[in-house]
């Protein structure tokens, strides 16, 4: 009797210890993740004197929005923000549509060459995008669809390279999105489909009425990934957009470059450059944090239903 009680006490201690270790680890890891963000917020609200003063680290003596104003102006924020938002929304919406369709086709129809096609989808993922970059660049510069067009057109500097690759599910890491959507649609019960078939619904009616509503949370996750990657993208944008660089990532880079130059001539202190830079970075990340805040419950609650698995 006594030993049983002692044993129960021991397991209780063990449980407490396990949860203590768990919390300690979670807090430590959370700190590492949040630190860069946390450090930017107070520093972006400081004035130059506070930034130079080593005693002031977390709490500015006086909160100012001047850095945000300066960054706003230097980045030409209203214009670059709008351009970036327009491009990103276009790209992520089109990619969501095309990858959902392709994923559904691969998941639910056993046509000839299905597994070969799925293999090709995965193949597009493992090839470094840099490898096809220059041939692609030249193809878009002299775009003629294998000589079908009479005179090649130059698509660079427009949104067309983004639109065309997004519509066809060959944009940045679209193989990953197709893979996610295929997994989701594969996991749906065949009875649903059969019932629709019996009711006389064609493949498209089945898709839109029966299958699509069940794939909502996975689609939101695909949308989020696509949005985030496009928002952050600088590699493909440099390639496709050529000279017109009125987009947020370039604007953010511009701040750094301007300050780098003026720093070399000792026109500004590095502390000042840093606080304005931090304000600019926060303004760049803000939309991502907002969209993550809105969509995070789909990550957190329904992971098991998203189908992101092997």
């Amino acid at each position: 009797m006594r030993s049983l009680r002692a044993k129960a006490r021991l397991t209780r201690y063990k449980a407490i210890l396990v949860s203590l270790v768990r919390y300690a680890l979670i807090i430590a890891i959370s700190f590492v993740i949040l630190y860069p963000l946390m450090a930017k917020i107070p520093s972006s609200l400081m004035n130059e004197a506070d930034a130079i003063d080593r005693m002031v680290r977390w709490i500015p003596s006086q909160i100012t929005l001047d850095n945000f104003r300066t960054a706003f102006r230097m980045m030409n924020y209203p214009v670059t923000f709008q351009n970036s938002l327009k491009l990103t929304l276009t790209v992520s919406t089109l990619q969501l549509v095309s990858c959902t369709l392709v994923g559904y086709g691969l998941a639910r129809f056993q046509f000839r060459g299905n597994s070969l096609l799925f293999g090709l989808v995965l193949f597009t993922l493992i090839v470094p995008p840099q490898m096809v970059a220059l041939p692609l660049y030249l193809n878009l510069r002299y775009f003629d669809v294998f000589g079908l067009l009479k005179k090649p057109i130059n698509l660079l500097g427009t949104h067309w390279p983004f639109i065309l690759t997004s519509v066809t599910g060959t944009g940045f890491r679209n193989g990953f999105f197709i893979y996610i959507m295929r997994q989701v649609f594969r996991g749906m019960p065949a009875d649903l489909e059969d019932a629709a078939l019996v009711d006389g619904a064609g493949p498209f009616a089945t898709f839109f009425r029966i299958m699509l509503p069940g794939a909502g949370s996975a689609m939101l996750i695909v949308f989020l990934f696509s949005f985030v990657w496009q928002w952050n993208d600088i590699f493909l944008s440099t390639l496709y957009l050529g000279g017109s660089l009125e987009y947020l990532p370039f604007a953010l880079e511009r701040i750094t470059h301007i300050f780098y130059e003026s720093r070399r001539e000792f026109l500004v202190s590095y502390q000042y450059a840093s606080i304005v830079n931090n304000a600019g970075m926060l303004m760049f990340i803000a939309p991502l944090l907002v969209i993550y805040g809105v969509l995070q419950r789909y990550f957190v609650e329904s992971i098991e239903r998203t189908g992101i698995k092997g």
Partner: peptide, 28 residues
């Protein structure tokens, strides 16, 4: 009959793969 409808769904990828992946890949 139903399965051949699958081609319609994957057609965008087939076109995109040929134009924006396979061809540049071969060119590389």
């Amino acid at each position: 009959k139903r399965n051949s409808a699958g081609y319609v769904f994957v057609l965008p990828f087939i076109i995109g793969f040929a134009l924006f992946f396979l061809w540049p890949f071969a060119q590389s």
